[in-house]
Design a protein around this nucleic acid. Structure first.
Lengths: 132, 132
DNA sequence: ATAGAAATATAGCCATAGCTATATTAATTA
DNA sequence: TAATTAATATAGCTATGGCTATATTTCTAT
């Protein structure tokens, strides 16, 4: 059993979710605020703030005190990679015949645990569009 | 986005891994020891011990100090459910054409995030045995 | 321009999971 | 049986993510 990989995935999971969400907010609303992040994730603002501080310390985020949030190049790279992976998993689940809502919820959890190899197979399946 | 579900899954994830592993050890070796658990999970014995204490407090495990570990009925139920889910995901990934090693690693992470609906679809896919 | 509202930040708490070091108990073997 | 080894337990540390309460700053509207 290879549980180490899973635990390592966990460390980056929250980071990926935040960066993906920030990228989305920047894209749709033009800015990413702590308030929006907290709402989207259904957590307290203080919790969002704390995580944002961590992401800032780790160089994924650019921000000034009391101002909204931007992604560094490093942050953007992870965000786009995560988004791509998310879409692949979501489409895959829907092609499998799962309804949008369930597929969306499951994809959220699954996306962080899918290897490159598996992702490739899912893409292949998606382009073949074989519904079983 | 439904991140709350993912976070709730995380809380039970480690619990499920432990209970599944303990059931396996009981089955294969006849007993489950902290040493074995720590080795299997590649963590320190002190860490395994601490989690085992938590599982004991939460009523998933029966044990006496300095003795090996057993599952309560509650623990057994979760273990067998987890095992079933794990096998379904593993078979599914392999039917998708993913090699045993990769499938095994991915299943470890994915199994905790698969809803009942998705699990059903995977089972259906598995019994159809359609390799794409 | 300033008062009140909204957003951000900080402090301090809890639980979990990880670690090393050390103590205690059980098992083995000389 | 006694000494050594192995296993378990405990103490104390770190980091993460969750919370509420409160302070501070910025925004908005009168």
């Amino acid at each position: 059993m290879s549980f180490r990989k899973v635990r390592n995935a966990h460390k980056t999971e929250n980071t990926e979710d935040y960066l993906e969400l920030i990228a989305e907010l920047l894209n749709s609303k033009g800015e990413a605020r702590i308030v929006d992040i907290a709402n989207e994730l259904s957590i307290a603002q203080a919790t969002a703030n704390k995580t944002i501080q961590r992401l800032h310390n780790q160089g994924f985020i650019k921000k000034q005190p009391y101002r909204s949030i931007f992604l560094t190049v490093k942050g953007q790279q992870i965000a786009s990679k995560s988004k791509k992976r998310h879409n692949t998993v979501l489409k895959f689940l829907m092609n499998l015949g799962i309804d949008q809502k369930t597929a969306s919820a499951d994809a959220e959890g699954i996306e962080h645990h899918v290897s490159e190899k598996t992702l490739k197979k899912m893409e292949k399946f998606n382009s073949a569009k074989k519904i079983v």
